[in-house]
Design a protein around this nucleic acid. Structure first.
Length: 883
RNA sequence: GGGCGGUUAGCUCAGUUGGUAGAGUAUCGGUCUUACACACCGACUGUCGGGGGUUCGAGUCCCUCACCGCCCACCA
């Protein structure tokens, strides 16, 4: 017997072990089903599971488990990402505690140290994924630094280089002076901040006056090589070509004109520092200016007094203050005004980015983008569709991708230079000698690749590429990619590009972009805010199924999810409901074997016909919802069916059957058994643990695993909408009695005497056949008779034309009943007014579909009938009061 | 500067071809009815952000305004 309340801990541990050790989710390569595959978006090895991962993985698991139920051959491939900068930072921090820096260890020892760290802590996030019940194939677990993935990286790099799609060059890049590396454009966060705009006067060399420039970065003026104005700016007409004296540095620089300058901003006069601003870099090339570097890779002014004078060696922040001070003193500072602008920051450490000129490697995304753009939507469908536009927008404005990073942890760039002749060798295998001069002292490029470079290969590198493995043949391209929109650019677009380039085929057929999880106030969850809901805590407290079901139920498309603990708690109630419904079933089913089968298309009980009909509808509904990624609809429809129909009505209705013996009981047992089993199957993708446990405890299921069962097949013979509607009428009548009882404050334990006056002979027959169901309203006696006299002291309502009359004895509050009737008639009136208006509108009657007009007329007739009957009842009630 | 999303019951949100506004939660009243108090029975709650338009009919389609949020972008 199951315990009274559902206790997830032991159940989850048991099934996790069962699934892992039994390799339940390792696909059988020779199985006949159509392949269905997903590669997991690899979390960082440094990461701990946050609620966003939990959502991401839950949705994938729902899809995978559902696909298995539909007979597909499913591979869900797990793994982690080496996360270059992030991981290096973590290990460097650990080293710092020992008072060491990475340079103290040297490159090899440091990398060794990172691997040790990975061995010790890198599995943590995988353990957390396991706790959610993710049905991944653990035998195929991958890591972006695995040998075969490294091989894939090299092959791709070399091939792109040969095709001219990777190139090396000196460029101005986003440099993080703290991480000491270049960053890609999209690794820069633009953070709004309040700064200053300083207006500085530059005098003409010939003493003929001056211009005033405006800048937010006065410290860079030491590297100025021009001042630029718009050629059509009348304020500066005819001045281009004159020389200016750069204050402080006292150098001569030219005044140039370029249409790039915005006349509206500041003074319309721009200082040009080609080495320290990406726009100025372009201007510098266009106008053949001097390139003067005054800031070094640490973000300090260069140690060169001829360039920086007394500012040499100062930090850029100190230098800014000091220069402003000097300008103020010598009268060149014309004005200073506060300015809100956005400042580029390192996405990892938030240090302000320094534009920095250096040798870097680039992928020519501008050449690769058009093909990737064309793949959507013909080869790849994006859900929700709105993201398609964002995807296009990014690809249409793409710039080349800086892929070199000046750190140690990552895939080292397979390029060597010859110290003798300067030859650059790019090769899949380590070269032993220079291909040009034979020199054997080749030096490998010290840089490593951007983490996203290896991630971009993930869908095929994890399947064994460049080998033509069976896995690759069977499971590439994958069926769907499930991810958050935050990495649409970092990752999704680049995977598409690499897939097309190296597999000749897109890496996935569909992309499902899910919401971001936010806290109850709508803020992004983050460590610094301390508002994160830790999925591990939630699993501990409420069980994995509760968390999973909550995430699924709230995963409506295109919306952020606001998560709060109360919601998870709410869905724990649901898991308990499932559990207890099962306990009830077990009490009422044979212990040792499945109940005797009956022909479900021929069951007699109206309640059985109703629930079986509803089951068919729900089966179709959930399937359709999941096929179109409407996770919330799938979860909701099962939730409502189980709780509001199966538990609230059906289980109550069959209690009477279970007290009997023989055919009636057997029929109820078999329908109960069938419906419960199929509900468990419907629920299983979202709540794998509780359903697995209940499933295996059902008679006849010993030793079976719900995870390998098929989706319940359709049962067309059980589609009985007419009978279902009849049953619903009975439920409405019962509810009407319950409402009267509640509103007149009659105790539930008090047994009522009820008279039903049916509107037709058919209704009378139906009520008579369903007489037993009225136990649910707790009755003393039930009279079904169209001609029965309504006792004067009675409360009443009308359901589908049938008068429902509850006898009252003297203890009842007559005023309360009168008020209740008034209210009820009021409601009918309100509906009737709207309806009459509609039907008296000729346009409506003429133009609306005939069906609709008919049904509205029927409703009108029904309401009028109800109103008339209720008024009659009210009049008689008033008479009774008078007596 | 471009692009996207949101504004529906006190709160958090559903609402798939336009056709009687829903759920959970909260609140109120009642119940130990032998699966479940993590429960049961019932009640209450809405000019669907404002304005305009299309339509017989709009939460749903179009326009416009307001406020909130996100993404992208080299305005110093």
């Amino acid at each position: 017997m199951l315990s009274k309340a559902y206790e997830p801990q032991e159940v989850e541990a048991h099934w996790r072990k069962h699934w892992e050790e039994g390799k339940t989710f390792t696909p059988d390569m020779s199985a006949p089903g159509d392949p269905y595959s997903i590669v997991i978006p690899p979390p960082n090895v440094t990461g701990i599971l946050h609620i966003g991962h939990a959502l991401n993985q839950t949705l994938q698991d729902v899809l995978c488990r559902h696909a298995r139920q539909k007979g597909k051959n499913v591979l869900w491939l797990p793994g982690t990402d080496h996360a270059g900068i992030a991981t290096q930072n973590v290990v460097e921090r650990a080293l710092a505690k020992e008072g060491k820096r990475r340079h103290d260890l040297g490159r090899e020892a440091f990398i060794e140290r990172v691997w040790e760290w990975k061995k010790q802590y890198g599995g943590q996030i995988l353990e957390q994924i396991k706790s959610l019940g993710a049905s991944v194939d653990w035998t195929r677990e991958a890591f972006t630094m695995d040998d075969n993935l490294a091989r894939a990286v090299r092959k791709v790099f070399v091939q792109l280089y040969k095709d001219g799609l990777i190139y090396k060059g000196k460029y101005i890049v986003n440099w993080c002076p703290r991480c000491h590396t270049a960053l890609a454009d999209d690794e820069v966060d633009h953070i709004d901040s309040k700064g200053m705009l300083w207006h500085i006067r530059y005098d003409f060399a010939d003493g003929s006056g001056s211009v005033t420039i405006a800048t937010t970065r006065p410290e860079t003026m030491l590297g100025d090589s021009a001042v630029c104005v718009h050629p059509e700016d009348e304020r500066y007409a005819g001045l281009a070509g004159k020389k200016l004296i750069l204050p402080i540095a006292n150098r001569e620089i030219p005044l140039i004109a370029d249409r790039y300058v915005d006349r509206e901003f500041g003074t319309g006069c721009l200082k040009v520092t080609p080495c320290h601003d990406p726009n100025d870099w372009n201007l510098g090339h266009a106008h053949n200016l001097e390139f003067i570097q005054v800031i070094d890779d640490n973000g300090n002014m260069v140690q060169d007094e001829t360039l920086c004078g007394k500012y040499a060696g100062m930090s850029r922040e100190e230098c800014r203050k000091a220069i402003v001070e000097e300008l103020r003193e010598n009268g060149h500072l014309v004005a200073e005004e506060p300015l809100s602008h956005s400042v580029g920051c390192c996405y990892r450490c938030k240090t302000v980015i320094e534009p920095y000129v250096s040798d870097q490697w680039f992928v020519a995304l501008s050449k690769l983008a058009p093909r990737a753009r064309a793949a959507v939507p013909s080869d790849i469908k994006i859900y929700p569709e709105n993201w398609t536009k964002t995807y296009y927008n990014w690809l249409d404005n793409i710039r080349d991708w800086c892929i070199s990073r000046q750190i140690w942890w990552g895939h080292r760039i397979p390029a060597w230079t010859c110290p003798d002749c300067g030859e650059l060798i790019v090769s899949e295998t380590d070269p032993t000698a220079c291909t040009k001069c034979g020199c054997t002292n080749l030096e490998q490029d010290p840089d490593v690749l951007d983490t996203w470079f290896s991630s971009a290969l993930w869908p095929f590198s994890t399947m064994g590429w460049p080998e033509q493995t069976d896995t690759l043949k069977k499971f590439y391209p994958t069926s769907v990619l499930v991810t958050g929109f935050d990495i649409l650019f970092f990752w999704v677009a680049r995977m598409i590009i690499m897939g097309q380039q190296f597999m000749g085929e897109v890496p996935f057929k569909e992309v499902y972009i899910h919401a971001l999880v936010r806290d109850a106030q709508g803020r992004k969850m983050s460590k610094s805010l301390g508002n994160g809901i830790d999925p591990q805590d939630m699993v501990q407290k409420y069980g994995a199924d509760s968390l999973r079901f909550t995430l699924t139920a709230f995963a409506a498309m295109g919306r952020d999810i606001r998560m709060s603990e109360e919601r998870i708690e709410g869905y724990r109630h649901f898991m308990n409901k499932v559990w207890n419904a099962a306990r009830f079933a077990l009490m009422n089913l044979p212990e040792d074997a499945a109940p005797k089968a009956v022909d479900l298309g021929a069951v007699k009980g109206l309640h059985h016909q109703w629930i079986l009909n509803r089951l068919e509808e729900v089966k179709a509904e959930e399937d359709a919802a999941l096929e179109s990624y409407r996770f919330n609809d799938a979860a909701q429809c099962v939730y409502k069916f189980l709780w509001n129909e199966f538990c609230d009505w059906y289980l109550e209705l069959i209690k009477a059957d279970m007290r009997e013996e023989g055919e009636r009981k057997e029929e109820a047992q078999y329908v109960l058994y069938t419906v419960l089993k199929e509900i468990l199957l419907l629920l299983h993708p979202m709540a794998p643990f509780v359903t697995a446990e209940v499933w295996s405890s059902l008679p006849g299921n010993e030793g079976t695993d719900i995870a390998t069962e098929l989706y319940p097949a359709e049962r067309p013979e059980c589609r009985k909408p007419l009978e279902a509607d009849q049953m619903m009428f009975l439920q409405e009548a019962i509810s009407a009695i319950r409402t009267i009882r509640a509103e007149l404050n009659i105790k539930p334990s008090y047994k009522l005497t009820v008279v039903l006056r049916p509107a037709s002979d058919e209704q009378a027959a139906l009520l008579e056949s369903g007489r037993g169901f009225f136990d649910l309203a707790r009755l003393e006696s039930l009279t079904i008779d169209a001609n029965a006299h309504a006792p004067k002291a009675s409360a009443s309502n009308v359901v589908r034309g049938c008068e429902v009359i509850v006898l009252l004895d003297g203890a009842v509050d007559f005023q309360a009943e009168l008020a209740r009737l008034d209210k009820e008639i009021g409601k009918v009136d309100k509906d009737l007014v709207a309806l009459n208006g509609k039907l008296s509108n000729e346009n409506f009657v003429m133009r609306a579909p005939a069906e609709l007009v008919e049904s509205e007329k029927a409703r009108q007739a029904d309401l009028m009938d109800k109103k008339a009957k209720m008024q009659a009842l009210q009049i008689r009630f008033k008479e009774a009061m008078g007596e």
